[in-house]
Amino acid sequence: MKLSPPRPDRRRFTRLALASGVALAAPRAFAAETFDPYDEVITDGPARITRRISGLSSQKWEDHFPTLGNGAILCNTNDRVLHFWGEDGFYKIYPTSVPLTDELTRRGRTEIVLKRPAPEWRPTPNMLERNPDLPKYVGPGPQNPLGVRALNLSWQYYLIHGTNDIRKIGRQSSSGCIGLFNEHIIEVFERAKIGTQVLLI
């Protein structure tokens, strides 16, 4: 009798992957359960891999910043990861979501100008132009697309924030912001300061 190979333990794989900081694939046909204006519209075909699984390769801060005063954040939109260096030597890499298109992606140097521990959300004028049906305001809580923390950058409307929809991480799924798992944005939020330098590449 021919024996079939054992079926993979998907739950164990998911736990191991998340523990290592890897963004997992999500089916394209998965229906949205909560409001999220950053979600891609998913209408076609069977389940497919829509996320990029990054190797999360480390970087040297000296290759991107002149100093670690106030800490430093590097957002790599190609690899879909955020590198955080603290001025105390702390270093960690986090998987992220990135903008939907290159047109929505802003690159260059900026800094954190505001830390919001319970962010409220309002669509930008460009978002309302693209989708007039968006709500004009969403308060803090499980329906908020900014998750549990938000860091405002010096560029108007650009943020590093959490998300209540973990399917977004590892995907091109935002209107310009960089998104992290809620547990990861909490870590970054606690270590980042007003004036922390940020570079998007």
Results as ranks from 00 to 15, higher is better:
89 G>M: 03
102 D>G: 13
62 E>I: 11
172 Q>W: 12
184 H>I: 00
52 R>A: 14
125 P>F: 09
135 P>F: 03
129 E>H: 15
103 E>G: 11
44 D>A: 15
62 E>P: 06
12 R>Q: 00
35 F>H: 05
139 G>V: 02
40 E>Y: 12
168 K>I: 14
104 L>A: 11
197 Q>M: 11
108 G>N: 02
162 G>N: 08
36 D>V: 08
135 P>Y: 03
116 R>F: 10
16 L>D: 11
129 E>D: 14
5 P>S: 08
43 T>G: 11
48 R>P: 03
79 D>G: 06
45 G>F: 11
14 T>A: 14
26 A>T: 11
69 G>N: 11
197 Q>L: 08
190 E>K: 12
45 G>S: 08
2 K>S: 14
65 F>T: 05
47 A>P: 07
27 P>F: 04
200 L>N: 01
29 A>C: 10
42 I>A: 15
17 A>P: 02
148 V>D: 09
118 A>K: 11
164 N>L: 06
5 P>T: 06
105 T>F: 06
16 L>K: 09
134 L>E: 00
42 I>F: 13
115 K>M: 00
123 P>M: 04
17 A>F: 03
181 F>N: 03
142 P>A: 02
19 A>H: 05
9 D>A: 03
139 G>K: 06
153 L>G: 02
27 P>S: 07
182 N>P: 00
8 P>M: 02
57 S>F: 14
112 I>M: 01
160 I>V: 02
126 N>M: 15
132 P>R: 03
27 P>W: 08
179 G>Y: 09
183 E>H: 10
77 T>K: 12
37 P>S: 06
12 R>F: 00
163 T>R: 06
181 F>K: 08
6 P>L: 10
62 E>Q: 12
111 E>D: 13
91 Y>G: 04
168 K>L: 15
152 N>E: 15
